[in-house]
Amino acid sequence: MVFTSRAGGVSHSPYDSFNLGTHVGDDATDVAANRERLAGILGLPPERFVWMEQLHTNTVTVVDGPAEGPIEATDAIVTREKDLALCVLVADCTPVLLSDHTAGVIAAAHAGRMGARNGIVRRTVEQMVALGAAPERIQVLLGPAAAGESYEVPEAMAGDVDKHLPGSRTKTAKGTPGLDIRAGLVRQLMSLGVTHIDADPRDTITDHDFFSHRRDGVTGRQAGVIWMPHA
């Protein structure tokens, strides 16, 4: 499991420098170079990386090999294939990486506010279980994302999300209504019997080592990547 930051790439401002998103207006050649660099660091061919057309849905797709382009209209991908890198792109949303090494099932999910509210992570766990995973064996890593201290939303929105994702409602550092999506996801995962959970506490909104759409508007995307190497 790997989470990238914005450092170490070739993209220019406002995508500087390790932007991995092809859909944000960055030069395609620079993004391709960054993705090649990522592949080299991880020791996998670029064609073994699977990306998603993320639309804030709760759609989960099982993949069994490389794809020509991004998997259409999905926000989570699951596989049993070895040496296939599942990638999730974010710039404030929560990247969620999941694995049951005993069953040989892994997943990557894009848990933004709407996707998390509508059950993308729960549905990902259910799909992993359908492929042989067991909740008590699943290990989860939640990556850098917008933190509750910074993620200010209208009162009604905080209440709506918390109704569907209990534990996500919070107050920001300013005392205004906020959302802590990672906290809600931890609670949801535990309710599903998934207890091996680690969460990176870093806040993409305030930490300039990361891209943040909420902070900067036009910006790049970092990635969470998970793969199962051959033994």
Rank of each mutant, 00 (worst) to 15 (best):
E81Y: 12
P229G: 09
A28T: 06
A111P: 02
R113E: 02
E155I: 09
Q222W: 00
Y15D: 06
P45K: 13
G184N: 01
R35I: 05
D83N: 15
V105N: 14
A183P: 00
V10N: 00
M157G: 00
G21Y: 00
T195N: 15
P14Q: 05
I41M: 06
L97V: 09
M1W: 07
V62K: 04
I106F: 13
G143T: 11
E126K: 05
R6P: 14
Y15Q: 04
F18A: 07
N34G: 01
H101G: 05
F210D: 14
L192D: 00
H23Y: 07
K174G: 01
F211M: 09
V129P: 12
L84P: 14
P135D: 01
V161F: 10
D209T: 15
S150A: 07
F3D: 13
R122G: 03
R214N: 13
A183R: 06
D203G: 12
S5F: 02
W51D: 07
G43K: 04
L84F: 13
P166N: 14
Q139W: 06
R182I: 03
T29P: 00
A199H: 01
S212V: 08
W227R: 12
K171I: 11
Q188N: 03
S17T: 15
D180I: 01
Q54D: 02
G178C: 08
G178Q: 09
L89V: 08
S13N: 01
G115Y: 04
V125W: 01
R202Q: 14
A145K: 03
Q127A: 13
G112T: 02
M157E: 10
L185Q: 00
V2F: 10
A133E: 07
A73P: 00
V161R: 13
V88N: 04
A103D: 10
I120Q: 01
G8N: 09
A67R: 07
G119Y: 10
L192M: 08
D198R: 10
M228T: 11
R202C: 10
H12C: 01
S5H: 03
L179Y: 05
H164E: 02
V121G: 02
K82T: 12
T204V: 13
L20G: 06
L98H: 07
P144R: 02
I181F: 01
K163E: 06
V78C: 09
H196Y: 13
S13I: 04
A76M: 04
A145R: 03
R214S: 15
